[in-house]
């Protein structure tokens, strides 16, 4: 099966600021999202997951490597990007910030279609999108302004705005991080329903491993610009191989095992350690003292979606 969205050896490097080294935010990533599949990209802040998401929708131009949509490399001319964004839509984190406070729901959702000249039967298009996003009956919501709605409803408006263009892929950056617990489940349910009813594919970026368990088919764990482990949700979350994934799972309150507290703060993309990039914080390396850990670079994971799990670690092959 051809992936609807793919990145090959992607790198995004931000230029140096005031004498610092350039930041290697995304430092070699292969990732595929197949038709009707939900992939969760998880990691801590600063690991590069949001940069990767932005590169996927063409908001950030990669320094190296390629983004492919239905097997075709993404072009970066204004026209090519515009065409691409009908196909791949971005849903942002904070709906309060993503919506224009002076624009009502109808205009917010109609913005995309208008930009793309899809103004024939615009009412119908907007109302259909609102209904798909769970704002029913749509007529009741179309005239409202963001401040008249709850956070969950605002996020539904943002999702409706994405759906109005009938995309085949949605890239959602922390779609529920700013929402309350009870609302979070409702929005996640919506993403699952959209997959089932419209065959939509999604890449969901999150720091929350529980979200992956709730909605994703596959998961990719990112650390310092690279995917360090990827595979099916069951395999990666229930039988994690990479010491970083294991540590992340162990600190969850319900993990039932002693927490492996990594020391230090998430590291700095302006100074990526040589060898395995996780080695300075790795509990396994501390125990095994293998010279490869800080001496030998690891290959970039292939991101082959048919493998049940892949881990970038010298010690757990």
């Amino acid at each position: 099966m051809k992936p609807v969205l793919e990145v090959r050896d992607l790198t995004v490097t931000y230029p140096a600021r005031r004498g610092a080294a350039p930041a290697r935010a995304v430092d070699g990533v292969n990732l595929r999202v197949r038709q009707g599949e939900i992939v969760a990209l998880v990691g801590e802040s600063g690991c590069g997951k949001s940069t990767l998401a932005r590169a996927l929708v063409g908001l950030v131009k990669p320094t190296g490597g390629q983004v492919l949509s239905d097997g075709e490399p993404l072009g970066y001319s204004a026209a090519a990007l515009k065409a691409y964004r009908r196909h791949t839509q971005l849903v942002l984190q904070d709906p309060g910030g993503a919506l224009n406070p002076r624009q009502n729901v109808f205009d917010a959702v109609a913005e995309g279609p208008r930009l793309h000249g899809l103004t024939d039967r615009l009412d119908e298009r907007v109302h259909t999108a609102l209904a798909k996003a769970g704002l029913r009956p749509p007529e009741q919501f179309a005239g409202r302004f963001p401040h008249e709605m709850s956070g969950g409803q605002q996020q539904r408006v943002v999702i409706a705005g994405a759906l109005a263009l009938e995309p085949s892929v949605i890239v959602a950056d922390e779609p529920v991080a700013s929402l309350d617990a009870s609302v979070r489940g409702e929005i996640l349910k919506l993403i699952l329903e959209l997959r089932d009813s419209l065959g939509l594919s999604a890449l969901v970026v999150s720091h929350d491993l529980g979200l992956a368990w709730n909605i994703a088919d596959r998961v990719a764990v990112m650390y310092l610009g690279r995917i360090v482990e990827t595979g099916t949700v069951e395999e990666v979350l229930l039988r994690p191989k990479h010491p970083y994934t294991r540590a992340l799972l162990s600190v969850l309150p319900d993990s039932g095992e002693p927490p492996v507290l990594l020391t230090g703060e998430p590291p700095d993309p302006t100074s990526v350690p040589g060898g395995c990039r996780f080695h300075p914080r790795c509990p396994l390396r501390a125990a095994e003292q293998d010279p490869r850990c800080d001496g030998e670079d690891l290959p970039v994971l292939t991101g082959d979606p048919s493998a049940s799990s892949l881990a970038a670690c010298h010690l757990v092959q």
Binding site: S150, S182, V183, E186, K189, L192, W213, V233
Partner: peptide, 12 residues
């Protein structure tokens, strides 16, 4: 809870 997120309809 696998592929079954649980929420609570409505708002406070």
């Amino acid at each position: 809870s696998r592929l079954a997120p649980a929420g609570l309809p409505g708002d406070p």
